[in-house]
Design a protein around this nucleic acid. Structure first.
Lengths: 335, 335
DNA sequence: GTGAAAGCGCTAACAC
DNA sequence: GTGTTAGCGCTTTCAC
C-alpha cells in the first residue's frame, strides 16, 4: 500500500508540508496561486488524507459504533438504514457489531471503544438493563452514547424508544375485542426494557378488560431459537391452550406460524396471532400477519442525529428521551 | 474523553513507556515481575491501546469495509452476518456502507479507502461491471479487494459468486415444465454481472426447450422502485400478458405480489412466480413463493475469510473464483 | 532488563 | 505567505 501523503506532495511541489496541509484546507494564509498548484496535484494523484493521523491529533475519528443484538428481525435492518443515512449526511463512518444476543460478546466489543476508536456509540442492548457496567465505564470516559429500542434505565442518556406500553395495551385490547380469552404473551426477555414495558401493557389491558391473568400464559423467551421454539410449541399444543398469541418479536411470530402449520392449527380460527414486527411481507402472508410496527428507520435516523448532535455541539446538547409511536396494522391473523 | 494511555501507565508505575509497551505485549525482554505489575495495573484501569496510533505505525487498521447496493434484499442481510462473524473471529472491525443503488455514492465512498482507513474491501457492485475505475484505483494502491455476488469482470480478483447461469436455466426450465409459454424475466440490470448471467440462463433454457424468445418479455429494471413497479405492472396487466414471471431480485417479487393483489391476478393460476430470494417468509406467503436461494451467509463468510487470508498471508494467497450453488425451492407460486 | 529516541501522517502554534 | 517544530499514542531500534 504505497499511499500518497503530504510529505510526497510537498516534495513534488517543492513546498513545506505545512503549506501543503494549509492549502488543502483552503487556509487564507496561503496564496491563491499556491492553493491551486497544491489542489491540482492532490486531485491528480488522488490524494486522500490518512484518517488515522488526523484522529490521533484531533481526538476525533468521525466514526460511530453501532451495536445490535441481531440482524434478523427487520426492525434492526431498517434501523441500520436510518443510522447509515444520517451518518453519511454528516460525514461519519459506521462500524457495525452484532452480538447475536450474547451479552459476553457485547461486553467484549464495548470495552474496545474505550480508547478513541469511535467518537460515539449507538446501542440496542443485549445485556440485561440492570447489568450495564460495561456501558457506564465508557460513559465515565466521556463517550457519548445513544440507546435505542432496548434501552438502559440506569443513566441519564439519550433514549430513542417507542410507546411500547401503549402499543401492547392496544394490541391486547384488540385481541380481547376479537373474543379471545386465553391470550398468551411471548416476552423477548424479562431483563430487557421492551420486554418489561410490553408485558406491562399486556397485563394492564387484561386487567382493565376484566380478564384474569394466568401466569402460565406468559412465555419467557431465552433468545435461543431451539428453546424458544420448544416453549412456543408446548404452549400452542397444550390441552386448553391459548386462543391468542401476542409475540414481542418478529422471529417468534414466524416460529408460531411454522408450529401452527406443523400441527394444523388454524390461524386465526383456532388461534389469533399478533406481533411486534417490521416484516415487509406481513401483508402477504398466509394468513396476513397483524403487526405492531415500529418506525424503525426513523428511530435509527434519530439515534444517529442525536449522537452526532452530541458530538458536534456538546454545549447545545442535552440528553433527551425521544418516544415515537408504533402503528397497529390489523390483518387476517386477528380476524 | 480522558483516555488512559501508555504514558499514564508508565508514570504511575515509574517505568518508561517502552517498557510498559513491551510488557503489555508479553515481550521476553521484560522480567516476569514487571510484566505482572504492568498487566495488573492495565487491567485495573481498563487500559485499551489507541487503535489509531497503532495503525499509524503499522499501516494496518484491522478494519475492513463492506460496500453494498442495498440492505432490503435479505440476501445482503445474511451476507453481512457471514462477513461480520468471520471478521470477528479474526479480530477485524467492519465498516458498512450502503449505496442505495447509487453509483456516484459508491465512487465517493470507495475513494476514501485510498489512504489507510481500511485494510481491505468487500464489495457487491452498484456500478456497472464495466465502469469500475474507482475500484481499480484502489487496486493500484495495493488494497486487497473481494467481490461477491455482483462482481466485476475486469480484474484478477477474488470473486465469490453463485451458479447464476445454471440456476436461472433450471428455474426457467421448471416454469416451462409447468406449462408456461410466455415467461417474462425481470432483470436486475443489464450492466451487472448477475443480471447478465441470469438472463443468459433464462434465454438458453427457452432456446433448449424450443420456445421463442420475445424481447418484450425481458423487463429491464431501473432499480428505482417507482419505475420498476410501473414496469412490472404494465407487463402483468397487458393483454396477452405473461403466464410466468421470473424475477432476479426479491424486491421485484414482492412488487409482483402487490400488483397481482391489486389487479386480482391469481398466482399461480393466471401467472406463475419464481424469484431469486432469501426471504425467510417465502414458505409462509400466500401463495408460498418458489425461490432460488443463494447461500448468502456462506458467501459473506467466504468473502471475509478470503479477504483476511489475503491480508494476513499475502504470500500464500492467490485470487480465487469461488462459486457456490443456489437451491431451487419449488413452492405454490409455480404449481 | 530497562530506557531513550525516532518516526508513522497529520495539524497548529509559532517563527520569519 | 511560507516554513519550522512539537506532539497526538504507539512500536521498534538501539543504547546502556
Amino acid at each position: 500500500m504505497e499511499a500518497i501523503n503530504l510529505k510526497k506532495l510537498a516534495s513534488l511541489l517543492q513546498l513545506s508540508i505545512s503549506t501543503v496541509s494549509k492549502a488543502l484546507r483552503d487556509s487564507h494564509e496561503i496564496s491563491a496561486d499556491t492553493k491551486k498548484r497544491v489542489m491540482d496535484l492532490a486531485r491528480e494523484l488522488n490524494y486522500e488524507p490518512n484518517p488515522y493521523a488526523g484522529s490521533l491529533r484531533k481526538f476525533k475519528s468521525k466514526t460511530i459504533a453501532v451495536v445490535l443484538p441481531d440482524i434478523i428481525n427487520n426492525f434492526f435492518i431498517f434501523a441500520i438504514k436510518g443510522i447509515q443515512e444520517a451518518a453519511y449526511l454528516k460525514g461519519y463512518h459506521v462500524l457495525i457489531y452484532i452480538t447475536n444476543e450474547n451479552p459476553e460478546y457485547e461486553k467484549e466489543v464495548v470495552r474496545q471503544f474505550a480508547n478513541g476508536r469511535v467518537d460515539g456509540l449507538i446501542i440496542s442492548l443485549t445485556s440485561p438493563f440492570d447489568k450495564t457496567e460495561h456501558i457506564s465505564a465508557l460513559e465515565d470516559k466521556g463517550l457519548p452514547i445513544v440507546f435505542f429500542d432496548r434501552v438502559s434505565q440506569n443513566f441519564e442518556h439519550t433514549l430513542i424508544t417507542t410507546n411500547n406500553y401503549e402499543s401492547a395495551y392496544k394490541g391486547t385490547t384488540l385481541l380481547i375485542k376479537q373474543g379471545c380469552k386465553r391470550i398468551a404473551h411471548c416476552q423477548v426477555s424479562d431483563k430487557i426494557s421492551i420486554g418489561i414495558d410490553r408485558l406491562n401493557g399486556y397485563k394492564k389491558a387484561l386487567q382493565d378488560m376484566g380478564i384474569e391473568l394466568d401466569p402460565e400464559w406468559i412465555l419467557s423467551s431465552n433468545k435461543d431459537i431451539d428453546y424458544d421454539t420448544d416453549l412456543i410449541e408446548r404452549a400452542l399444543t397444550r390441552k386448553n391452550g391459548p386462543d391468542a398469541l401476542f409475540t414481542s418479536v418478529e422471529t417468534h411470530a414466524l416460529i408460531a406460524y411454522d408450529i401452527c402449520r406443523k400441527h394444523k392449527i388454524d390461524i386465526p380460527k383456532k388461534i389469533k396471532l399478533l406481533s411486534f414486527s417490521n416484516l415487509p411481507t406481513a401483508h402477504l402472508m398466509q394468513p396476513s400477519l397483524s403487526t405492531i410496527t415500529q418506525p424503525a428507520y426513523e428511530m435509527g435516523r434519530a439515534a444517529a442525529e442525536q449522537l452526532i448532535l452530541a458530538l458536534e455541539k456538546p454545549a447545545r446538547f442535552k440528553p433527551e428521551r425521544i418516544q415515537m409511536d408504533s402503528i397497529l396494522y390489523e390483518r387476517e391473523s386477528t380476524r
